[in-house]
């Protein structure tokens, strides 16, 4: 019998319940003993994390789309994940999110480096089970969408840094060019230059931003 602390950070009770059912199913078959906590907000999650002994084996289900914390220190599950990595370096983190856009996924991979990455829509109940086991026993486990993305990046020769990606992301959200300098720590001229460079690397040169976004989406940068 192996004891594991499990924290489910999830604001939808129905999903939290689904995880719980999955864990119960595993504990019957594999004889793991799960001590399950559910946090439906970042504030709760923080207090629970702080109460956990860092020496214990811990598995954390982390949703990304969360209300920001009351002290506004953590804006999303991503910020929480970074915090967990610091407080509980040994904890195994499973990011489970509905977000499947490449930009977000890429960012999460870089910032949290999760042991499991589930795009909620990817998975069937069986996969959920096998994924969780995989994470506990032989991490990492990435669901299909994430695997595809990683593959795309490995085969692509184009390199875009964080700011490039951010520019593309903001443009894809429909943010206006004139508002970009307020969001991205760069001048208008700098942003324009980067856009031009990106267009050049995508070989679309003088075309509209729309084409840039299309091709970036195709190549998995957004």
């Amino acid at each position: 019998m192996q004891n594991l602390n499990v924290l489910i950070v999830e604001d939808h009770p129905i999903i939290a319940n689904a995880y719980r059912l999955a864990l119960e199913s595993i504990s019957q078959a594999k004889k793991y003993e799960f001590k399950i906590d559910v946090a439906d907000s970042i504030d709760k999650a923080i207090s629970i994390i702080n109460s956990i002994d860092s020496g214990d084996q811990t598995l954390i289900f982390l949703d990304i789309k969360l209300e920001k914390s009351s002290d506004k220190k953590y804006l999303s599950g991503e910020d929480l994940g970074i915090e967990i990595r610091q407080v509980l370096p040994n904890a195994k983190i499973i990011v489970a999110t509905t977000y499947n856009d490449n930009y977000r996924v890429n960012n999460i991979l870089k910032s949290i480096n999760p042991d499991g990455f589930f795009i909620k829509n990817d998975i069937l109940p069986n996969e959920l089970l096998s994924g969780i086991i995989e994470v506990i026993e032989n991490p990492p486990y990435y669901s299909k969408t994430v695997q595809k993305l990683i593959r795309k990046h490995i085969t692509s020769e184009i390199f875009l840094d964080k700011i490039d990606r951010q520019i593309l992301f903001e443009l894809s959200l429909g943010t206006k060019m004139k508002d970009l300098p307020n969001i991205i720590p760069m001048s208008m001229g700098g942003i324009e230059r980067r856009k031009r460079q990106m267009k050049e690397s995508f070989e679309i040169y003088d075309k509209e931003d729309k084409y840039l976004l299309e091709i970036a989406r195709l190549k998995g940068f957004i």
């Binding site: 939808h12 009770p13 129905i14 999903i15 939290a16 319940n17 689904a18 995880y19 059912l21 999955a22 119960e24 199913s25 789309k65 509905t98 909620k120 829509n121 998975i123 069937l124 109940p125 069986n126 959920l128």
Partner: peptide
């Protein structure tokens, strides 16, 4: 999210 939750729950 809710459909996902419901679907997994149904699965189990």
């Amino acid at each position: 999210g809710k459909i996902f939750g419901a679907r997994i729950n149904l699965g189990f």
